[in-house]
Design a protein around this nucleic acid. Structure first.
Length: 286
DNA sequence: CATGTTTCCTGACAGC
DNA sequence: TGCTGTCAGGAAACAT
């Protein structure tokens, strides 16, 4: 299940392979729920565009596109959300199309960019923004696609603390809420809470200042470490090369139910919180 | 408005 | 062996 580190890894890998190329052909499957933008419209929009760059915003992969019509002043973005089982692959057209392929972009390099998603929790969309050249004295303030939440790797401590003020829900549920914080999913929520020594069901608004400080640090540490290792390969996540990440070897609680805590030896406990399996050490996390 | 619950989807795996 | 049932999970939609 791709979270921030996996999405970052995929986005970087895809960026290296497709940056600067033109989209010469577009094929989309007929599974309407995959397309937040109607498929016909998306096809029209993507065809002929040049890919300026590919980057991560939250758990979304954003393709910044130039549509070749400079006068239109429109910057298009292709937004890819991998959901649980989505993959982006760059390969030769000769490689047989895997089952559950939902999008194939033919590139000027002669290779194809493919979106494959068996479980269809992934989503594709076009984001359109006006080019903000209206204020020539200022740098463009155009951000393009932005989720409603904050980026965990750059949020300041004070803003981080503010996110949870007055919230009456378990801290883990708050961490998973993308409207608050981007990119933290089930694995990294559990791992961060373990490293911060906080029980997942503690009420977010009742955490002490010192605990939020620890959590702020541990989220960033865990995410950065995971990015360095290429993400976690838990079920079927692979990067753009089809290579698996290695962060799962660093998991201290996730999927370690019953195994001894690596700090104190107490068996790791598993509960269900907000419909998500949740792992923690009952001794180390209070 | 803030939270909680249900829904979407298929592969993997357990149990008979 | 092969079938059936259960589970996983991001985030939107819906309910409370």
């Amino acid at each position: 299940m791709p979270e921030l580190p996996e999405v970052e890894t995929v986005a970087n890998g895809v960026n290296d392979r497709v940056r600067g190329q033109r989209i010469e052909s577009v094929w989309l499957s007929s599974k309407p729920q995959t397309f937040k933008t109607p498929a016909a419209e998306m096809e029209q929009d993507l065809a002929g565009c040049r890919i300026i760059q590919v980057r991560r915003v939250g758990k979304h992969i954003v393709f910044d596109l130039e549509n070749g019509d400079a006068r239109s002043g429109v910057l298009l973005q292709w937004i890819v959300h991998l959901g649980m089982t989505g993959r982006l692959l760059v390969c030769s057209p000769e490689v047989p199309l895997p089952a559950h392929t939902h999008a194939v972009l033919g590139l000027s390099s002669g290779r194809e960019l493919r979106f494959v998603d068996p479980r269809r929790f992934g989503r594709l969309a076009i984001f359109r923004m006006e080019n903000e050249s209206v204020e020539p004295s200022h740098q463009s303030t155009a951000q393009g696609f932005q989720g409603p939440g904050q980026e965990p790797l750059s949020i300041a401590l004070a803003d981080f603390q503010k996110l949870f003020r007055g919230r009456h829900l378990p801290i883990k549920s708050a961490l998973l809420n993308q409207k608050l914080l981007h990119g933290v999913g089930n694995i990294y929520a559990d791992e961060s809470l373990f490293r911060a020594g906080i029980r997942p069901k503690r009420i977010a608004g009742r955490l002490r200042k010192a605990e939020l400080e620890r959590l702020h640090v541990s989220i960033q540490t865990v995410l950065r470490e995971a990015i360095k290792l290429g993400g976690s390969s838990v079920s079927d996540y692979v990067d753009a090369d089809g290579v698996r990440g290695f962060f799962q070897l660093q998991h201290r609680v996730y999927m370690r139910t019953g195994q001894p805590c690596l700090v104190c030896g107490t068996p790791i406990r598993k509960i269900v919180l907000g419909g998500r399996s949740t792992h923690y050490c009952p001794h180390c996390q209070r």
